[in-house]
Design a binder for these strands. Structure first.
Length: 490
RNA sequence: GGCAACGUGGCCGAGCGGCUAGGCGAGGGACUGCAAAUCCCUUUUACGGCGGUUCGAAUCCGCCCGUUGCCUCCA
């Protein structure tokens, strides 16, 4: 199986053919570390994390690089506000980023380079561009000359004349052309600076990715990924520099994820409508954000709301219930039945559908639909077993087979259910909170459930209901099933 | 203004020439001591508007309307 994916460069769906199979080189533009990451960053990180896992699943030997922009105007401004140096700010938010990534279950990249550790490589790229006549020095700055690169605009489908007409770029007498962009910025007083052939200064934004890709991946990579808002000018400018310098294609496939909106408007720092990842995972299990992201096709806009988080949470609970119910079904008396259960075939179809959907432009919503189709079938088996008060061995085996298949698919590729263990999940969470001193011991809940079951057998329902009500006030939900009482948090 | 997307049933959201996507919500039923959970049934001209191509269009083409993104830093 291979992947057909939309390439921004060609505007078409294309079959992914790596340059040197089975090796696959992926670069994704990481974050600028001047503040906490928000849901918009989270979506991009989750999407490409899952894409990477899927490609690994397909058998590619993926080398995945994601950078940190750790020096730029916003970081410098922030450091001025706080009367500290830019590195303090960068290090603080890199640490914050790692906490976020752990909490939303995004795997670390194979290489996570920082701009400030690649100044020399960046200078080499700029020197090369000047030598070849694509860039020029001007009063300590260095600019890329857009008019020297005829293919400029090919990624974002713009032409230079239109850009010039609508240019909102501040006119600068240092530039020959308003569209020219800075490769090197001369240092102003009090700003971080590195020595260079053009005097002290720091790199412009777009060169860093080129230099880091050359160093860690090579001159031509397979996939270059990022948010849709990076297409222009960032990725356009990367292509111009890299291809001007090497004369080779820079990236074979350009993959961009759609943006996160709030009330239809782009989530962004400047609009102030952002929600940090920390706020999200302080309220919800990390899987729920992942599920929300994966329920939308990666190229569509995703409108974030807390209502949608609640909806997704309910959908997630339905999934978890279906998995957990295996343990309840095991407690029922079983009997022998002839033949193979048809569910085995459904599981096979689900798995095929799941991977087929992902192969078709990474259609995660379609892949989830196959999973939920199977969950419906599991519900039917459970319903029948509970009303019969028993289950056939064949059904139980088929159910377990299905559960294992769902877990394998969701855990391996989607990065969901990482901490899921049947029967232990809720208790583990409660135990964690116990250690934090915010809740009681799960063994005490077990005890109360046991006592309540005794009162129910004696038909002392008012006592049983009182226990259930009081536990509910404490955030513990009891559910009576034919196979016994189960409890969960919240 | 230029460029690029998008407009699907109560809401969200796949599909992109013929075959019930899926999720959430709502109503009814089964089950239950009562709940919860679960399943079943219903939500039976869903595809912005108007034309066109076709045996057949949500799906292709044209125009119009509306929303958004990019054109400045941005995942």
């Amino acid at each position: 199986m291979s992947l057909r994916i939309y390439n921004t460069l060609t505007g078409k769906l294309e079959e992914l053919v790596p340059l040197n199979p089975p090796h696959l080189l992926i670069y994704t533009c990481g974050v600028t570390v001047y503040d906490d990451s928000h849901v918009g960053h989270g979506r991009s990180l989750i999407v490409f994390d899952v894409l990477r896992r899927f490609l690994e699943h397909l058998g590619y030997r993926v080398r995945f690089v994601r950078n940190f922009t750790d020096v730029d105007d916003k970081i410098i401004n922030r450091s001025k506000q706080e009367c500290t140096d830019f590195m303090t700010i960068a290090n603080r938010y890199i640490a914050s980023y790692y906490i976020d990534m752990e909490n939303i279950r995004v795997k670390p990249a194979d290489v996570e380079p920082r701009v400030t550790e690649h100044i020399q490589e960046i200078i080499e790229v700029i020197k090369g561009l000047i030598e070849k006549g694509y860039a020029y020095e001007s009063e300590g700055d260095v600019y890329f000359s857009v008019s020297s690169f005829p293919e400029y605009g090919k990624l974002s489908k713009r032409n230079v004349e239109e850009l010039e007409a609508g240019a909102r770029v501040e006119p600068s007498e240092k530039k020959k052309n308003p569209l020219d962009f800075a490769l090197w910025k001369s240092a102003k007083a009090g700003e971080p600076a590195w020595d260079s052939p053009w005097g002290p200064g720091r790199p412009g934004w777009h060169t860093e990715c080129v230099a880091m890709i050359f160093k860690h991946l090579g001159q031509t990579i397979d996939i270059h990924a990022g948010g849709l808002d990076l297409v222009f000018p960032h990725h356009e400018n990367e292509i111009a520099q890299a291809e001007a310098l090497t004369g080779k294609p820079f990236a074979r496939y350009w993959v961009h994820n759609g943006l996160v909106t709030v009330g239809g408007q782009k989530m962004s720092k400047s609009l102030g409508n952002y929600i940090t990842l920390k706020e999200v995972y302080s309220k919800y299990h990390p899987d729920i954000l992942r599920l929300l992201v994966l329920f939308t096709h990666y190229r569509s806009p995703l409108d974030f709301s807390w209502e949608k988080m609640e909806e997704t949470k309910r959908a997630y609970e339905r999934l978890i219930n279906a998995l957990e119910d295996l343990e309840l079904l095991k407690k029922l008396p079983s009997y022998e039945e002839k033949g193979t259960h048809p569910l085995f075939e459904s599981v096979k179809q689900m798995e095929e559908g799941f991977f087929k959907a992902l192969s078709d432009d990474f259609n995660t919503p379609q892949a989830l639909a196959t999973i939920y189709g199977l969950i419906g079938e599991l519900g039917k088996i459970k319903n029948k077993a509970f009303s019969d008060g028993r289950i056939s061995r064949q059904e139980l085996e088929a159910y377990e087979f299905a559960v294992n298949s769902i877990i394998r698919s969701l855990r391996g590729v989607f990065g969901l259910l990482e901490d899921y263990k049947p029967e232990c999940d809720v208790k583990r969470v409660v135990q964690k909170e116990l250690e934090a001193g915010t809740i009681f011991d799960s063994r005490l809940v077990d005890l109360l459930v046991e006592v309540r079951d005794m009162t129910r057998k004696e038909k002392l329902f008012s006592v049983a209901d009182h226990i259930r009500d009081r536990l509910k006030e404490l955030g513990i939900i009891l559910e009576d099933t034919p196979a016994g009482t189960k409890w969960k948090k919240q």
